[in-house]
Design a protein around this nucleic acid. Structure first.
Lengths: 181, 181
DNA sequence: AATGTACTAGTACGAAAGTACAAGTTTGCC
DNA sequence: GGCAAACTTGTACTTTCGTACTAGTACATT
């Protein structure tokens, strides 16, 4: 009755279901039952693969964080190709925001890390990657400031559900990136 | 047996208990029982003053948002007194962050507003007040960018539990505020 | 003083949760 | 084929929750 087995696939399905749920209900709103229902697996499956709910949310957040950080590879390429760093970064930020769920999950991660120290490295991955990336085009302090700017703009766009002012962001990025340490 | 009555005071005590709890457990982690215990009132009192848990968290977040926005009055005065706008704002940001619970609650509010549209005006109060304030020293676009920068830096400091790089923030603020629209 | 309204406080109830578990099934290995 | 380990699945147990409710107490108004 069980059809074909696929433990790896099941584990992934559970993680992906959790990732899909986090933007809807928040990290704290996750439940074994909701994840199981979304993944189309019985309740027992989620507890079999993840001993506790914390394990499950951690795995989901780790998956999301890795996927977000991986997206920075595309940024690197685009920056190499484009000539206007500030405008390119602003456009990439807008593009990043287009996947609202992913951006929201990343923000959920930021806040979850406040109360769960083990999540802190995950919560730093995207930001650190961004600073590292921008470090090729500005001094470290300016790169960090540009990352602050990007995260601040993203947070506002998410919370207000308003589109990003890409041109304005590009102007600000240009100013920050030009500044010396 | 009930001692002296003080409905207003009780209501406030409940709200303040909820505000104290939000940084610890998050908005989603609030429960009638935890709030009642923290406030030192029986369970029935929280449901008497707030019909639902949403009402309670909304009242608490409104209180926190108002208190944060009120804090901007001090910013206005400090800016009038100081001569270096960027350095003053950076110092004020660090000061703001010193009350970690308040800053954290504000961020919780940002995220809560994503799923609860009725909270959106509250979530905008602090940011809008900041932009309005900075508008006296830069054009609107630059003021908004500076607010992004501040919020981004705050979010990072909260999530990473790392101190603010005040000097670096001042440098970035100076660059952004100088930039034209 | 009486009287109705606002408030208090303890309890109760149904729903939903995390987690544990037992019994059965598939799979890889000899 | 036989066997142990991995996996599946449904259910059950306990806790905790939101909310409702009842019986009573204080207070303002008359």
């Amino acid at each position: 009755m069980t059809g074909r087995r696929d433990p790896e696939g099941r584990r992934r399905a559970i993680i992906e279901a959790a990732c899909a749920l986090i933007p809807e209900v928040g990290v704290g709103g996750l439940t074994h039952r909701a994840v199981a229902a979304r993944a189309g697996v019985p309740l027992g499956a989620t507890t079999y693969y993840f001993a506790t709910l914390d394990d499950l949310s951690r795995a989901a957040l780790a998956h999301a964080a890795r996927s977000a950080a991986d997206g920075l590879r595309a940024w690197r390429q685009a920056l190499r190709a484009g000539d206007d760093v500030a405008a390119t970064v602003a456009a990439l930020t807008e593009e990043y925001l287009a996947d609202r769920d992913r951006a929201l999950t990343e923000t959920e991660l930021y806040l979850a890390a406040v109360r769960r120290p083990e999540l802190r490295p995950l919560a730093r991955a995207w930001f650190d990657g961004l600073v590292d990336l921008l470090g090729a085009y500005a001094d470290p302090g300016a790169a960090e400031a540009a990352a602050f700017l990007i995260d601040g703009a993203l947070l506002r766009a998410l919370s207000d559900q308003r589109p990003l002012d890409t041109a304005g962001l590009a102007t600000a990025l240009r100013a920050v990136l030009r500044a010396g340490a």
